[in-house]
């Protein structure tokens, strides 16, 4: 077993460009769940909208990036309005069901053979990352060393772009949540009726929160698809949302650093398990009837699911959260 490679790769997975994308999607979800108490289970839908609203115009219609980027924001806001209007009045569990359904609708459409001419079907779209490649001061195809991990210049650049965006968004969220506007969101999370009694338009604030978190999630989707230079509907399945839930609960709900710490720890642990199993099965360290080369990859999903369930029961405040502020007791 090559432990140094396993640990280095796991560390890299915790901080690579894809992790930054996940972190953004989770930061958006944190605005919904952690600050507003909106149980949005359709965050993958926002990420998909963000990725495809950039990829389709650029790859299918040859738009310039500066026209496509505003479209990401427009599409994301439209999706938030479409999603929010019927659902924001609903109780938490209904909201969860309907948001999952909405995200799946988006994914089904993106995956559909009928719209292959637009979305590329299940192959998705690629060749929309020229903007990032031109911007990259590094050699796109050159190999760079990050500890024991070797990555190409493009991914290294996207790593910096991704985490740079994460830092900007974290600053924005921190500032907004300290503002009077952010305090209203928290009051809605704590007691919606009280906020209403104080004359706040709860529905309006919820909608604004949905739009803000959705925009952040769409940026995350854009980073996720750009770093692997391909937008595929398979990336935006419900597992993306569930992973982000695990991440924000792990890091602490309603904490600015929650998604960041959560992402790094989550992907480090998940990849550590995955790499260890991969090596162990390849070198016959584990009996084959237990785990083999073909199915070890499933274990990380099982662990992620169990971690989510266990965290919610035993440590709902995560690593940094405040138990008094944990949102799951509010209906």
């Amino acid at each position: 077993m090559n432990w140094s490679l396993i640990v280095w790769n796991a560390l890299y997975t915790g901080i690579n460009a894809a992790a930054a994308g996940y972190c953004l999607v989770a930061s958006g979800l944190n605005v919904h769940v952690g600050y507003t108490g909106l149980l949005n289970f359709g965050q993958a839908g926002f990420a998909a909208v963000g990725a495809y609203a950039f990829a389709i115009p650029v790859a299918t219609y040859g738009w310039e990036w500066y026209w496509a980027l505003p479209l990401v924001f427009v599409a994301s806001i439209l999706f938030a309005l479409l999603l929010g209007l019927p659902t924001l009045r609903l109780r938490a569990d209904y909201l969860a069901i309907v948001t999952i359904a909405a995200a799946e609708i988006v994914r089904f459409f993106l995956n559909s053979v009928r719209f292959t001419w637009l979305t590329g079907g299940s192959d998705g779209r690629n060749q929309f990352t020229g903007f990032f490649q031109d911007l990259n001061p590094l050699e796109n195809n050159a190999r760079y060393k990050l500890g024991a991990q070797s990555i190409d210049g493009y991914r290294l650049f996207m790593l910096f772009v991704g985490w740079g965006l994460v830092a900007l968004i974290a600053l924005l969220v921190w500032a907004l949540m300290r503002s009077p506007w952010g305090r209203v969101l928290k009051s809605i999370r704590e007691d919606e009726d009280a906020a209403r009694a104080l004359g706040k338009n709860v529905l309006m604030f919820k909608m604004q929160s949905l739009i803000l978190g959705g925009l952040i999630g769409s940026l995350g989707g854009l980073i996720l698809s750009s770093q692997q230079q391909s937008a595929q509907s398979g990336q935006f399945a419900t597992t993306l949302t569930f992973f982000c839930f695990t991440i924000i609960v792990l890091g602490g709900l309603g904490r600015v650093k929650g998604p960041i710490v959560g992402t790094i720890i989550f992907f480090f642990l998940i990849q550590l398990i995955d790499n260890t199993l991969e090596q162990a099965t390849r070198r016959d360290k584990i009996p084959e009837w237990l785990v083999d080369q073909n199915n070890y990859g499933q274990i990380k999903f099982v662990v992620a699911g169990l971690a989510l369930a266990a965290l919610v029961v035993f440590r709902p405040q995560g690593i940094f959260g405040d138990r008094r502020e944990q949102v799951f007791d509010v209906r």
Partner: peptide, 18 residues
Amino acid sequence: SLTSMMIVSIGAALAARY
């Protein structure tokens, strides 16, 4: 809370599915 229990069921579902 019921919401926590719902999230527990979501985690359990993910684990069971895989």
